[in-house]
């Protein structure tokens, strides 16, 4: 079938403002938006800028706003989207070119929550053991691929870029509730700050946007509760 893509273009060296451009490509119902973007870039307009790495929904490179919703271009099928699809860069991050945004503010927030195992004990000879129940406690938040679909769908983040954002909180959650980690208190302190979890207004856009199906809002609420029980 013929598919029309309406893409928001912007080249900072030439354009003063972003503009819309339409492309028509031949695609199957089972094709993904990423396949159409490839068609355009390889055969119609080589200047179209977008990111993708694995193209199979696990690297988190190709999150973009497709038909008004944050999705991974490599997981969005035309069967679900129809034959007229709008594609825009993620909101709330500076656009570098076309569909490519500057991810640095996103990763800076990610690094701020210390997203790595902190354990000052002598490392055991084998692995650090954990019961299946202890592992299940944070299973949901281990699924994050850092695509930024949640953070850039969050209205609180759009208006206040100092907010750490859902993705950073999800990745803090992954270690706060890990029985092998010892820095939960430190992370809860960071997230209890003005720009931490209290900026969340439980809008649920993040949960809707997550291509991995993580219950993002629930994770944020669990962190809020952990801070409350630790301090009140």
């Amino acid at each position: 079938m013929k598919v029309k893509l309406r893409i928001k273009r912007f080249n900072p060296q030439k354009d003063r403002k972003p503009y819309w451009q339409e492309f028509e490509v031949e695609a199957e119902k089972t094709d993904r938006v990423l396949d159409a973007l490839h068609q355009i870039r390889w055969y119609q307009d080589g200047t179209l800028g977008f990111r993708r790495s694995c193209a199979h929904g696990i690297c988190g490179s190709d999150a973009m706003l497709i038909n008004g919703k944050n999705r991974l271009a490599c997981k969005a099928l035309f069967a679900d989207l129809g034959d007229y699809v709008t594609v825009e860069p993620l909101r709330g991050l500076p656009v570098l070119k076309d569909l490519i945004v500057d991810m640095e503010p996103f990763f800076a927030a990610y690094r701020a929550v210390k997203p790595y195992l902190i354990n000052n004990d002598q490392p055991p000879l084998k692995e650090r053991l954990q019961s299946p129940e202890e592992r299940a406690r944070f299973d949901d938040t281990t699924k994050c691929i850092l695509c930024a679909a949640c953070t850039t769908s969050c209205p609180s983040f759009w208006v206040n870029r100092d907010y750490l954002g859902p993705a950073a909180i999800v990745n803090a959650h992954r270690f706060i509730f890990d029985s092998r980690d010892q820095a939960a208190e430190e992370r809860l302190d960071i997230l209890a700050s003005r720009d931490g979890v209290w900026r969340c207004r439980t809008i649920f856009n993040c949960t809707d946007a997550c291509p991995r199906g993580i219950q993002v809002t629930k994770a944020i609420e669990e962190v809020k509760r952990a801070i409350m029980y630790a301090k009140v």
């Binding site: 800076a108 960071i190 700050s193 409350m228 009140v232």
Partner: peptide, 14 residues
């Protein structure tokens, strides 16, 4: 690789 400045912490927002 540098993080952003550590957020200001206080119990007030809680």
């Amino acid at each position: 690789g540098a993080g952003r400045p550590r957020p200001r912490g206080s119990g007030f927002e809680l």
